Amino acid sequence: MELDVSSISDPRSSGLTMHINKVHHVTTIARVAQDLGEDEDWLHDVANEMEIEDGVIWVYGVGEDGVMAFTDFGIENLIELIKMHKDDPTLLTRWDRTE
């Protein structure tokens, strides 16, 4: 079976599925903490459980260590984690002991 290279020039015509990153902005943890009325340090501890698939990323600039930031999806996930941690404040202490 040969692949028709002429149809690959336009991905829509080839039937191929492409992953396109639809994230056009992120919000820093400082801004999220301010918007949600939460302590930034506590929020950082809660967000440490998150993975990139959950909508958290690190943003690096010149001379900076990096800043935690969230996609809109990440903020939604973070809000759910906040609720879980407020319902059971011992979650962070249990997490700290496992390291």
Rank of each mutant, 00 (worst) to 15 (best):
D4I: 00
S14Q: 13
G66E: 02
K22W: 03
V46E: 08
H44L: 03
M84T: 11
L36N: 04
D41F: 06
L16A: 15
I82C: 06
M84K: 15
H19A: 08
T28L: 07
S6L: 04
E2W: 00
K22S: 14
Q34Y: 02
T71W: 01
K22A: 08
N21S: 12
M1D: 00
D35Y: 02
L36I: 10
G15F: 07
T71R: 05
W42H: 12
F73Q: 11
E2G: 00
S9D: 12
L78V: 04
I79P: 04
L81Q: 07
K22Q: 14
G15V: 13
E49G: 06
V26G: 03
H44W: 02
D39C: 09
M68T: 15
D45H: 12
R94T: 07
A69E: 01
D65V: 12
S13C: 10
A33N: 06
D54W: 06
F70H: 08
S13N: 11
V5A: 02
I20K: 15
G15K: 09
T71M: 04
S9T: 11
T98I: 12
S9E: 15
G74I: 15
R97W: 01
V56Q: 13
A33G: 09
D41A: 11
H19V: 14
T98C: 03
G61R: 12
M18A: 13
F70P: 05
E64I: 12
Y60M: 06
I52F: 05
E99W: 07
I79M: 14
T17I: 08
D4T: 00
T71Y: 01
Y60S: 10
E53P: 02
M50I: 10
L43M: 09
F73N: 07
D96M: 08
E38V: 08
T27Y: 07
V67T: 14
V32N: 06
L3T: 00
M1W: 00
M1N: 00
F70R: 07
R12T: 14
T17C: 10
H24G: 11
I75W: 04
T98V: 14
K86G: 02
G61N: 09
M1G: 00
E80W: 02
T93A: 08
H19L: 10
K22V: 15
S13Y: 06
H44K: 13
G66A: 08
F73Y: 08
G66C: 07
I75F: 03
M50H: 04
D41H: 05
I8A: 11
